[in-house]
Design a binder for these strands. Structure first.
Lengths: 257, 257
DNA sequence: TTAGTATTATAGTATGATTTATTGGGTCAG
DNA sequence: CTGACCCAATAAATCATACTATAATACTAA
């Protein structure tokens, strides 16, 4: 099982990775303002103490993520935010390392509340027996991790990723790192295993999601996931307003209907 | 106005861009199978006729998008699909250049039907007067482009991007390239300006979205966008089943509520 | 068998030289 | 004075080569 969003040992990274992260974080913090031209190759080489090869690989990495754009003669420009690929695992990591505020978590949860119920509804239609077993294994791992917040987070992420996988939609499958970021951060604010009552409530909600998918019931599965996410948002106090803004319908446009 | 998903002059690309695209497409087509180790640096240099520097920059670009991972001694491995960043503009471009099937469009529309109504609902709450004007300008440009499919597509994308911008959610703002891919492809299947009646119907729906956002009415705005997307899906014949799978609520978790 | 060590293939890093493309200024004809 | 054109300066893009670090493998000794 791959856990995109949670591999955080942080150890021994390569030179260009360090440089990419350094420049990337400087951009996000506004030290290299949007629209500005950042220092030339020679300056950056000296600033980070690496060769041009490593520096250029770092810049190519950042360019691939939409943070910068290099043009001959004019220099390397910091691109506007809407060119940044916010679903990128590294960009999320860098945000997390800088510390995220409630606003950032709110953005994450706004996306989650839409895409995860979709994943549940389509997974309910398309899941294979193997994929269902994968979800069950993850849920059992969560049961066994009541005492370990870290282990619980890992198992929780595995559960959500198994659902994404079963949705059979590659776009949904690639948001695992985003969910990992959301889980890791919200659990540092308010642990779901801090009390036995809370733990049981969380597990009940996850079980409801699994049941819905197991019974091939897209309504039950998506509503259970909606409730789960909404309650998580309330736990970390990012919910705005009492009622929903509106509702939207989910249609299946691909695969088994 | 930046148009992420439609900048398609295509020619005059740099060496590493060509190599990245070549390897990337080979991976997507299965010529470099998932999980396999692709040829070593020396072989790839010869294969694409570039220097080590350019090759490595291309590989770093692909690594940044989650397609590959390099490890010393073991080689460069093609990663599993759920590591790929499907929201990346280049990856979408490469898919488009290879030709997309109905299944791929279905995946795109499944995401659109969730995220764009969300963007409309939040934009209705958070939009500024300037942002509303931007949408109006885009809509007027669509009116003026009844005869030009290319011009219409560009204006249509600008309209959708203006909504994303007004949603004030960076994650939504970074999916512009995905919407551009969806529009460009579906318009080649079935042009919305092929007949005057169809054109008028499409414009009526877009106007309804704008009106909802102008009146700060999240229900009207999101429902109009839902209808718009559903009809587009029907036009290109990717709709599955008669009724919706289920419905989900939209909550605001950030910004002005 | 096992533990430790040497080998070696491969990606990673460094450096300097060369090429290419764009900007900005300057020249000259209109 | 205006515009088109050319030229030089500059910074990124590319090339070529050499060297380093890492980890998988094979080999040796306990």
């Amino acid at each position: 099982m791959l856990l995109n969003g949670l591999r955080r040992p942080v150890r021994a990274r390569s030179a260009h990775d360090l440089v990419a992260r350094g420049i990337g974080q400087n951009i996000m913090q506004g030290r290299f303002p949007i629209g500005s031209i950042l220092p030339g190759d020679a300056d950056l080489m000296e600033l980070y103490g690496v060769s041009r090869t490593s520096l250029r690989e770092a810049l190519k990495t950042l360019a691939a993520k939409g943070l910068i754009e290099s043009k001959t003669k004019v220099g390397t420009k910091v691109l506007d935010r809407n060119n940044w690929n916010m679903f990128d695992a590294d960009i999320l990591d860098w945000h997390l390392e800088m510390g995220v505020d409630a606003r950032f978590l709110g953005w994450l949860f706004e996306i989650r509340q839409m895409l995860e119920p979709l994943a549940c509804a389509t997974a309910a239609m398309r899941r294979t027996p193997d994929q269902l077993e994968e979800m069950q294994r993850a849920l059992e791992a969560m049961y066994l991790c009541e005492t370990s917040r870290q282990g619980f987070t890992k198992a929780d992420l595995a559960f959500h990723q198994a659902i994404l996988e079963a949705s059979a939609n590659p776009f949904l499958q690639s948001i695992g790192s985003m969910i990992g970021a959301a889980l890791a951060t919200s659990f540092t604010i308010s642990s779901p295993v801090s009390s036995d009552a809370r733990f049981k409530a969380v597990m009940r909600q996850h079980q409801a999601v699994l049941d819905g998918i197991a019974q091939r019931n897209p309504v039950a599965a998506s509503e259970a996931m909606s409730a789960l996410i909404l309650q998580a948002a309330e736990r970390i106090q990012i919910k705005h307003g009492e009622s929903a803004l509106t509702t939207v319908q989910i249609h299946a446009f691909s695969g088994v209907a």
